Computed example of a mutant assay.
Amino acid sequence: MKRVLAATFAAALAFPAVAHAHPDHSVAPPAPVANPVYGTGWQQRAPIAGGPRQEHSVAAIGRHVYLIGGIRPDGNGGVTTVPDVEVYDTRANTWRRAAPLPVPMNHPNAVAVGGRIYVLGGLSGGASWEALADSFVYNPVTDRWTKLPPMPKGFERGSAAMGVHGTRIYLAGGMRTLTPGPGGLQDTVADVHSYDVLTRRWTTLPSLPEARDHVGGAVVGGTFYVVGGRDRGQVNVRDTVYAFSRGKWTERAPMPTPRGGLASAVIGTKIYTFGGEGRVIDGVNTVFPETEAYDTRTDRWEELAPMPIPRHGTAAIGVGDTIYVPGGGNRGGGAPMDVNDAYKPR
Results as ranks from 00 to 15, higher is better:
Ala11Gln: 13
Ala21Leu: 06
His22Thr: 06
Pro23Phe: 02
Asp24Glu: 15
Pro30Leu: 06
Pro32Ile: 02
Val33Ala: 14
Ala34Ser: 13
Val37Ser: 13
Gly39Glu: 07
Ala46Gln: 13
Ala46Asn: 11
Arg53His: 04
Ile61Gly: 08
Ile61Asn: 06
Tyr66Ile: 06
Tyr66Gly: 04
Gly70Lys: 03
Asp84His: 12
Val87His: 06
Val87Gln: 10
Thr90Glu: 09
Pro100Arg: 05
Pro102Cys: 06
Val103Phe: 05
Val111Asp: 00
Arg116Trp: 09
Ile117Pro: 00
Ile117Asp: 01
Tyr118Val: 03
Gly121Ser: 07
Gly122Phe: 00
Gly122Tyr: 01
Leu123Arg: 09
Ser124Cys: 01
Asp134Pro: 00
Pro140Asp: 07
Arg144Cys: 07
Arg144Glu: 14
Thr146Ala: 14
Glu156Thr: 09
Met162Trp: 01
Met162Glu: 12
His165Gly: 06
Ala172Lys: 00
Ala172Ser: 08
Met175Phe: 09
Thr179Cys: 03
Pro180Phe: 00
Gly184Val: 02
Thr199Asn: 07
Thr203Asn: 15
Ala211Val: 09
Gly216Asp: 11
Val220Ile: 11
Tyr225Glu: 02
Gly228Phe: 00
Gly229Gln: 01
Arg238Tyr: 01
Ala243His: 02
Ser245Cys: 09
Glu251Ala: 15
Pro256Ile: 09
Thr257Asp: 05
Gly260Lys: 00
Leu262Ala: 12
Gly275Gln: 02
Gly276Ala: 11
Val280Lys: 10
Thr291Pro: 02
Thr296Glu: 12
Asp299Tyr: 11
Glu302Ala: 11
Met307Gly: 01
Pro310Phe: 04
Arg311Asn: 03
Val319Thr: 05
Val319His: 04
Pro326Arg: 03
Gly332Leu: 07
Gly334Leu: 13
Ala335Gln: 09
Met337Cys: 11
Asp338Cys: 11
